[in-house]
Amino acid sequence: MKRRNDIKHYTGFLPLTLLCLFILYTPLIVVMVYSFNESTSITTWGGFSLKWYVDVFTGPESAKFKQAAWNSFVIAIAAATTATIIATLAATAIIRGGRFKLRLPSLGLISLPLMVPEIVTAVALLIFYNFIGFSRGMMTILVAHIVFCIPFAYMPIAARMQGIEDTYEQAALDLYATRFEAFTKILLPLMLPGIISGYLLAFIISLDDFIITNFVKGAGVETLPTAIFGSVKQGIRPNIMAISTMLLAVSMLIVTLSYLISKTDKTK
């Protein structure tokens, strides 16, 4: 009985799984493999080479990509930092603030950006910036990134805080700590894995964003994703594959890090 109900024994389970994995990962594997291609062609294999990686850093487009990468990282760091601070304070208010009237609306508002289609946020931000006369440039990108990073930073932080019993803070108060001390000396250290995890998630979301950035960026200001897009419009060269592979590696590294950190539990 048990064996028959096991999902592995359903007809077509294996081929369906393989098909899904194929569709999902083949393009990524192709890009990764062909980034090491000796040939200038993006479809025919001409032997192993690191020349496109060298090209990214020294080639004709290198200045453009370096500037874009710099912009991307500056924005990602600034956006992730700001979003993490806001998310931490929001989580503290929502989870530790007891029952206040606007608790549910607050929770909704903070996670709403996850549900709004990105293109809508992009258009709305663009119109809003025009409306208030905020001239487009790095700042417009940064503000936009902070906005959509908050819910991503909030989720792991809130999840972590929910797992911390409030008796720790009560014990701190009982032992003559002020509310501020109970927060900084007890709650914050215990929440640190969640905060770091939220920070890294926000960082990667900011680093990867294309749609909103493309709408709100000023002329001449590029981030890595918009620079790649601009370059691809002129035809796909193998150096794009090298950049993409590096970006993928950074993403995977950070997401893995974020996952591992969120798993460390000091309360046990």
């Binding site: 019993e165 008796t167 720790y168 009560q170 014990a171 701190a172 108060l173 009982d174 032992l175 003559y176 700590a177 002020t178 007890i186 250290p189 215990l190 000091k266 309360t267 046990k268």
Partner: peptide, 30 residues
């Protein structure tokens, strides 16, 4: 008086020892 102003201390049911501090730091906290 809030709890931190009362010269009264509590042994909590689940102990609520601060997990990130050593035993000494826990005891020295108050």
């Amino acid at each position: 008086l809030p709890p931190n102003k009362r010269p009264i201390n509590t042994v909590f049911q689940n102990y609520a020892l601060f997990p990130h501090m050593t035993v000494t730091d826990n005891v020295a906290f108050g």
